[in-house]
């Protein structure tokens, strides 16, 4: 009997083998119990790894993953094509410098800082309370130059407290504050972003004790901050995202 190569032994547990090859390996294993024991262990590894990770297939796919869109890519491809033609060269170059591919980490940092400053406020957490929600939303929309919405998070246990206008590196920023019955507060930070409109995926950042999920949608950056576990914050962030992108 000719010695079997290591690769052939692995084929026995992984691959589709012809009858002949299978019989040959089985004959080998019958007279080489150490190899047989080794293959048995490898096959068990396969089974354990599958039972460990197959459950991921049954999990619902996070909305943020389904929301990944080709737009940004098309835009970059189009920009590259124009660039190659030499049209609008200066404008494109400026646009490239103004448009980092990754969302700026500072969005998360700014949002977390604003969260830490305003969420502990007892008497003046907001400038305009939720009782005047319509006025609040209209006012902030006007200042940011877009149509804002205050997401409805009551089904998740968070009621709108109100909102305020802040100042950010790109001008006005809107902050909406929410709170649950235990007084746990979340803030949604909305600011205009520099450069070309683009979309990014959800990102997570831990800023000291504050968890932040943030993303960029068109010209605006959104960041949801809270001092809660990221799993819980993600649930809220997904709802916020869905409501803002119906």
């Amino acid at each position: 009997m000719k010695p079997l190569a290591e690769a052939e032994l692995h084929t026995y547990i992984d691959g589709a083998l012809s009858e002949g090859a299978r019989a040959e390996i089985e004959a080998w294993l019958a007279s080489h119990p150490e190899d047989a024991e080794r293959l048995r262990a490898y096959a068990e590894q396969n089974a354990l790894l599958r039972s460990l990770y197959n459950p991921v297939l049954d999990e619902p796919v996070p909305a943020a993953l389904l929301a990944v869109r080709p737009h940004a890519g098309l835009r970059y491809a189009a920009a590259a094509a124009i660039f190659a033609l030499g049209i609008g060269l200066g404008w494109i170059v400026r646009g490239m410098f103004n448009t980092p591919q990754m969302p700026p980490v500072s969005l998360a940092r700014l949002a977390a800082t604003a969260h830490v400053v305003y969420s502990p406020e007892v008497r003046h957490p907001v400038e305009v309370p939720a009782g005047e929600e319509e006025h609040l939303v209209n006012w902030l929309s006007k200042r940011l130059g877009t149509t804002l919405k205050a997401p409805k998070l009551a089904p998740l246990g968070y009621e709108l407290v109100g909102g305020r206008l802040l100042s950010g590196p790109q001008g006005p920023v809107a902050q909406f504050m929410y709170q649950d019955t235990r007084g746990q507060r979340l803030t949604l930070y909305v600011s205009r972003q520099r450069g070309e409109p683009r979309d990014t995926a959800f990102r997570f950042s831990q800023e000291d004790r504050v968890s932040v999920f943030y993303w960029v949608d068109g010209n605006f950056g959104y960041a949801l901050s809270g001092e809660i576990r990221k799993e819980q914050l993600l649930q809220v962030a997904e709802v916020v995202y869905k409501q803002l992108n119906p």
Partner: peptide
């Protein structure tokens, strides 16, 4: 999931 997200973004850009 971040890794999946970055993969999907890149896949779209290079589709």
């Amino acid at each position: 999931d971040d890794l999946v997200q970055d993969t999907l973004e890149r896949a779209w850009n290079k589709f």
